[in-house]
């Protein structure tokens, strides 16, 4: 019994000692000096940074300025996650949606696209002949507005080893704004987030 206690406590101390040897991952940025401990995967701050830079670039490009007057209707198209992680792309698109709507430059459609609100659209129309509903409040046909522009994106990952035998992970957030009528890309941009850390760290 005494031996078991000694073995257990020795193993415990060894595990604590070895735990301290693992290098924590650090974010790397061309404009950053401060090293902050973060995960090697994509975290909330990465989504915020990507969304912030994407929206800034989009507003600055003037691609949302409708020359015919009024505001464009933007549809959120596919955001393809080509990383080793399971990502809910709404973490990115929701921030972009909020920023576009707040800017007053465009409106986002919830009728079509990957972030459509089927429940609201279909449920309100399903009550058309339901006598329980006041038919004066029924939505007439032909009221939905089609999208002028579509916002599509990719999240890509590239993992390499550095000369110091560390792991370098780069995430690419790529977005394209396409004109639905002509199929022409009105705006495109890419935000890259790089992280360097121990090979013992995993991204998923």
């Amino acid at each position: 019994m005494h031996n078991i206690k000694i073995i257990f406590s020795t193993l415990f101390f060894i595990s604590i000692l070895f735990n301290g040897c693992t290098k924590q991952p650090q974010i790397i940025s061309s404009s950053s000096q401060q090293k902050t401990y973060v995960t090697m995967g994509i975290d909330r701050q990465d989504f915020e940074k990507a969304a912030s830079e994407i929206v800034s670039s989009l507003l600055e490009s003037g691609a949302l300025n409708n020359k015919a007057g009024g505001r464009y209707v933007v549809m959120i198209s596919d955001i393809i996650n080509d990383t080793t992680q399971r990502i809910d792309t709404k973490m990115l698109t929701k921030k972009i949606r909020i920023a576009i709507l707040k800017s007053g430059k465009a409106v986002i459609t919830s009728a079509i696209g990957t972030e459509r609100d089927d429940t609201t659209i279909n449920a309100t129309r399903a009550t058309r002949k339901n006598k329980e509903f006041n038919q004066k409040t029924s939505i007439k046909t032909g009221q939905l507005i089609n999208a002028d522009l579509g916002l599509k994106g990719y999240i890509l990952q590239r993992t390499t080893k550095t000369a110091d035998d560390e792991q370098l992970v780069e995430y690419y957030f790529q977005m394209t704004l396409t004109d639905a009528k002509s199929g022409l890309a009105f705006w495109e941009d890419e935000v890259i987030i790089g992280k360097i850390g121990s090979n013992d760290t995993v991204t998923w």
Binding site: S32, Q33, Q34, K49, S52, I98, A99, K102
Partner: peptide
């Protein structure tokens, strides 16, 4: 707004640094 965030940057000696925002 997400366009209003604290950002840390390194400014090299005797060099200029530009803040750009929309």
């Amino acid at each position: 707004s997400i366009l209003s965030r604290w950002i840390v940057t390194k400014v090299e000696q005797k060099r200029s640094f530009i803040i750009h925002g929309i």
